[in-house]
Computed example of a mutant assay.
Amino acid sequence: MTATPVRAPRTGRERTRPQQRSRPARATRWRRIITPLLVVVLWEGASRAGILPPDKLSAPSDVLAAGWRLAADGTLWHNLLDSLVRAVIGLAIGGGLGLALGSVAGLLRLGDDLVDPPVQMARMLPHLGLVPLLLIWVGIGEPLKISLVALGAFFPVYLNTYGGIRGIDERLVEAARTCGLSAAARLRHVVLPGALPSLFLGLRLAFGAGWLSLVVGEQVNADSGLGFMMMEAREFAQTDVVVLGLLIYALLGLLSDLALRTAEGRALAWRRGLEAS
Score class of each variant (00 low, 15 high):
residue 256 S to Y: 05
residue 41 V to H: 01
residue 8 A to T: 15
residue 154 F to S: 02
residue 71 A to P: 03
residue 266 R to W: 11
residue 256 S to K: 09
residue 163 G to P: 10
residue 248 I to M: 06
residue 138 V to Q: 06
residue 149 V to D: 01
residue 193 P to M: 03
residue 106 G to Y: 02
residue 90 G to Q: 07
residue 69 R to A: 14
residue 77 W to V: 15
residue 15 R to A: 15
residue 8 A to G: 09
residue 210 G to M: 05
residue 33 I to L: 04
residue 104 V to M: 14
residue 39 V to R: 04
residue 243 V to S: 01
residue 124 M to G: 14
residue 231 M to I: 14
residue 22 S to T: 11
residue 22 S to E: 12
residue 153 A to F: 03
residue 31 R to F: 06
residue 6 V to F: 13
residue 11 T to R: 10
residue 127 H to A: 09
residue 118 P to I: 03
residue 178 T to L: 13
residue 69 R to G: 02
residue 211 W to V: 06
residue 227 G to W: 05
residue 123 R to Y: 07
residue 76 L to Q: 09
residue 105 A to G: 08
residue 44 E to V: 00
residue 105 A to F: 03
residue 245 G to Y: 02
residue 20 Q to S: 11
residue 265 G to P: 07
residue 199 L to C: 08
residue 273 G to F: 04
residue 272 R to W: 06
residue 133 L to V: 07
residue 141 G to E: 10
residue 239 T to Y: 05
residue 64 L to K: 00
residue 22 S to N: 14
residue 82 D to T: 15
residue 56 K to Q: 15
residue 115 V to G: 03
residue 170 E to S: 13
residue 154 F to N: 00
residue 62 D to R: 12
residue 277 S to C: 04
residue 111 G to R: 00
residue 75 T to I: 06
residue 183 A to R: 07
residue 197 P to V: 08
residue 259 A to V: 15
residue 272 R to I: 11
residue 80 L to N: 01
residue 226 L to W: 02
residue 26 R to M: 07
residue 25 A to H: 13
residue 55 D to A: 13
residue 52 L to V: 13
